[in-house]
């Protein structure tokens, strides 16, 4: 059974309970760039991404490397959620409108763009969708993932929560090919909270 998860919050990156990267007192963007450098991969598009996409890119990189070569393009589904949609980038884009509207910011003013970036990077063509809810809703996400896996809409699901606004990032992504109980997902989401 495939079962991996990744948490990015409080300037820490944790995979399956192990801290992979930690950088105290750094603004989020510096933290993300340093984390990207630490991953040791070369993907120049990373630098043009907004912060939501950078977070998703890093978490997906850590999780999807575990199943490389084990799925066809249409066998992996991505189901993400957050509370702030793309507001972090919306505010930056709206700032640009006051002088000259920035097309490179505008394309990131939708929450599902992070899914698009992950799909491009990994050649994923399966089901993909973005929910917005006030908090991480483990019942909702796990039930939707179950429907996809049981209904054979996907062999693997990359799912979870990816939220950023101002100086607060909160990412919990998991990768699975089997049903995982909502309580177990919730327990993992709430780990590494300090």
């Amino acid at each position: 059974m495939t079962d991996f998860y990744c948490i990015i919050r409080n300037n820490k990156i944790v995979k399956d309970g192990v801290v992979l990267f930690e950088q105290e007192n750094k603004p989020d963007n510096d933290f993300l760039t340093e984390a990207y450098d630490k991953l040791g991969i070369s993907y120049p598009k990373f630098y043009k991404m907004d912060r939501l996409s950078k977070l998703g890119f890093i978490a997906a990189e850590l999780l999807l490397s575990t199943i490389q070569g084990k799925y066809q393009a249409d066998e992996l589904a991505i189901v993400l959620s957050n509370s702030n949609s793309s507001l972090d980038t919306d505010l930056r884009f709206w700032d640009s409108v006051k002088t000259q509207a920035s097309p490179s910011l505008f394309v990131y003013t939708l929450p599902n763009i992070v899914i698009g970036e992950i799909c491009i990077r990994h050649g994923i063509k399966g089901e993909n969708l973005f929910f917005v809810s006030p908090q991480f809703d483990s019942d909702w996400i796990s039930s939707y993932v179950d429907m996809l896996l049981v209904g054979k809409k996907a062999k693997f699901c990359l799912a979870g929560w990816i939220d950023i606004l101002a100086d607060r990032a909160d990412v919990f992504l998991y990768l699975t090919d089997k049903s995982i109980s909502s309580s177990k997902i919730s327990e993992r989401y709430h780990s590494w909270n300090n």
Partner: peptide, 10 residues
């Protein structure tokens, strides 16, 4: 049915 192009964001 839902799919992704895995080609370009815009």
């Amino acid at each position: 049915g839902i799919s992704n192009d895995a080609n370009h964001i815009s």
